[in-house]
Computed example of a mutant assay.
Amino acid sequence: MKANVMIGSRSVIFNERLIVPDGETARFSVLIERTLLSFEVCFLINAPSKTPVEWAVTEGVLRMTFSAPPGTFGPLVLKTPARLGVIDGHPIGFTFELLAQHGSHVLQLIVMKGGNYDE
């Protein structure tokens, strides 16, 4: 039986730890109600960027790009959950924690349903 985990008024529907090497992309999907939301997470070393993480939902895929000079990733935490949108009448959001370890990136990603989110 799956545990019912709540963070505030938000129900955790996906909570995974990913270990992704430099320059590689992780791809996965989360079933939310009757909608499959796909994710792509990539890490770019030596890529110019104004922020260490950027994300956007395009054609049903949440693309998250982390970019920074070598040795400067993490720890990085999204302090308050960010809103992804609404699926089947429910607000959907996410939060993450990122650590860099010896050429790999450890990403803890949590997707939640319900509650309130920062825009």
Score class of each variant (00 low, 15 high):
21 P>F: 04
110 I>W: 03
58 T>A: 14
15 N>F: 08
109 L>K: 08
32 I>G: 06
29 S>P: 00
49 S>A: 15
34 R>S: 14
16 E>S: 14
87 I>Q: 06
86 V>C: 01
38 S>K: 15
85 G>A: 11
47 A>G: 14
64 M>T: 07
52 P>K: 06
93 G>P: 01
33 E>T: 14
52 P>Q: 09
20 V>E: 01
24 E>R: 12
52 P>Y: 06
111 V>F: 06
4 N>W: 13
63 R>C: 01
9 S>P: 00
49 S>D: 07
86 V>D: 05
30 V>S: 11
99 L>D: 14
82 A>H: 12
27 R>A: 13
17 R>K: 15
33 E>V: 14
32 I>V: 15
117 Y>N: 13
3 A>G: 02
70 P>W: 03
71 G>N: 02
94 F>M: 11
15 N>T: 01
15 N>L: 13
70 P>Q: 07
89 G>I: 04
37 L>I: 12
70 P>V: 08
46 N>V: 06
101 Q>T: 10
101 Q>S: 13
14 F>P: 01
34 R>C: 09
76 L>M: 12
90 H>A: 13
38 S>L: 08
20 V>W: 00
109 L>P: 00
67 S>I: 00
39 F>P: 05
8 G>H: 11
76 L>W: 02
44 L>R: 15
10 R>M: 14
73 F>S: 01
37 L>E: 06
106 V>Q: 11
70 P>M: 06
63 R>E: 11
12 V>Y: 05
45 I>N: 05
1 M>Y: 09
36 L>E: 15
52 P>G: 03
3 A>V: 08
42 C>G: 06
84 L>G: 02
25 T>D: 06
67 S>V: 01
1 M>G: 15
76 L>K: 04
8 G>L: 07
57 V>S: 05
61 V>F: 06
63 R>D: 09
68 A>S: 08
40 E>P: 00
38 S>A: 13
30 V>N: 06
42 C>N: 13
116 N>A: 13
81 P>K: 02
